[in-house]
Computed example of a mutant assay.
Amino acid sequence: MKVLVTGSHGYIGTILVPMLLAEGHEVTGLDSDLYQRCTFCGDIPRIPVLKKDVRDVEKADVEGFEAIIHLAGLSNDPLGDFRPELTQDINERGSVRLAEKAKEAKVKRFLFASSCSNYGAGGSDFLTEKTTFNPVTPYGWSKVRVEAALSRMADEDFSPTYLRASTAYGVSPRLRFDLVANNLTAWAFTTGRVYLKSDGTPWRPIVHIEDISRAYIAVLHAPREVVHNEAFNVGLTTENYQICEIAELVRETVPGCCIEYAPEAGADKRCYRVDCNKIAHTLHGFKPQWTARRAIEQLYEEYKSVGLTLEEFEGPRYMRIGHIKYLLGEGLLDENFRWTGQQYAEAVGGEQ
């Protein structure tokens, strides 16, 4: 297929794009490249890319594509809480605008990067795609509202699918340290402490970014009637952990480290345990390859390979909210998270 990937230069996009290319798809990216200074390791995929904010997409930008994989947006709860009105503007209105332009341009398939954050304060019972949403953050609410809007747009000519990813982890050229497995492994490697800022009791489903990418590919390859206007929890049902269990896996992997709780560590109302049987039984092309233990080993080896330091880990380069605050402080972004002046000129245009 001819596929447009928004967020092509982000944490997941830089893994998904090469996998799509390997499957024979013709891929174009769309990304404002807020994290162009945040490459950790490896190469950014060299594909045609439209350097553009998702809020500014026009019909002409999406014409000729058979499918859109929409990853772009403010990527987590801290960013969502920092500027809730921009989370609504970018994640919600921007996504709906993109879908509207795609529908006008006769794009047949629209794969939306939703999230298990939709379930929010879900408790310890296993949650299916039919479970009532209970989001507790602006980020979670943005995903819920976009799913609802896209569902209303679904018809014979426009087929959305909602991929509710578990909490991501794994090595990427645009690595993030604000994800639990990546974060705890980095704490252990750089300080000898698996440092927990909550009491460790909340449940989280977690999934490797390569397996998230495999889910998108499986949806692209599936018959339309199987995925039309359907939601899928992305991950493995066996890969649900309490945060303290993830910490223990890190302790067992990183030599000489110990688990330590922050003085202010307390309960986290974000707690959900997710049933992923629907995707396993429906999308026969989706075959996850990773477990948390294996991925923590991968992260540890990568941190050793690059010589990760505490200064890099705690700095703004690989923390999404930290980097956005840095760009704002330097005057490189305006208050609406748009590039300013010369920085915009340097960020847009051309191919990667």
Rank of each mutant, 00 (worst) to 15 (best):
E129L: 04
V227Y: 03
D157H: 13
D61V: 09
I206W: 10
D33W: 14
A215K: 01
G80T: 07
N183P: 05
V234D: 00
N134R: 14
L283C: 02
S142W: 01
E314F: 00
P288Y: 08
Y169Q: 07
A345M: 14
R145M: 14
L98K: 04
S142D: 00
N240A: 06
Y139P: 07
F110V: 09
A148V: 11
C38S: 15
L179F: 11
F82D: 12
V62N: 03
E210Y: 11
F133C: 11
E239G: 05
E297R: 13
E239N: 11
E23M: 07
F126I: 07
R273Y: 10
T237A: 08
R293G: 05
F189T: 11
E245Q: 12
Y35W: 14
E264W: 13
W290P: 01
S159I: 15
I259A: 01
Q352W: 15
A181N: 08
A222C: 02
Q242S: 02
G170K: 04
E301D: 12
A262E: 12
Q242H: 08
L98M: 08
Q242K: 10
S159V: 15
A267G: 00
L111G: 05
P205D: 14
F65T: 12
I44L: 12
A247P: 00
H208G: 07
C116R: 06
R293V: 11
E311D: 08
T291R: 04
G120V: 09
L50Q: 10
A165I: 07
L71D: 08
M319L: 15
A181G: 03
E156L: 09
V171G: 04
D77S: 12
D178N: 09
R294V: 13
E63N: 06
E156I: 09
G285C: 13
P263A: 00
Y11P: 06
C276I: 01
V144E: 05
R193F: 10
E351W: 14
Q298F: 12
S213W: 10
I68R: 02
V306W: 05
Q352F: 15
D211A: 04
G24C: 04
A154S: 13
E66Y: 09
L283N: 03
G10N: 11
D56S: 12
Y303D: 07
D77P: 05
Q342P: 01
A99P: 00
H284T: 15
T309K: 03
E252K: 15
D199E: 10
I68K: 06
V250C: 02
T237N: 12
T132S: 15
I324Q: 02
D77Q: 14
T128S: 13
F232W: 06
D81V: 15
A222L: 08
T137S: 15
G266D: 06
L196R: 00
E301L: 14
V234M: 03
P316R: 00
M1Y: 12
V234H: 00
E335L: 08
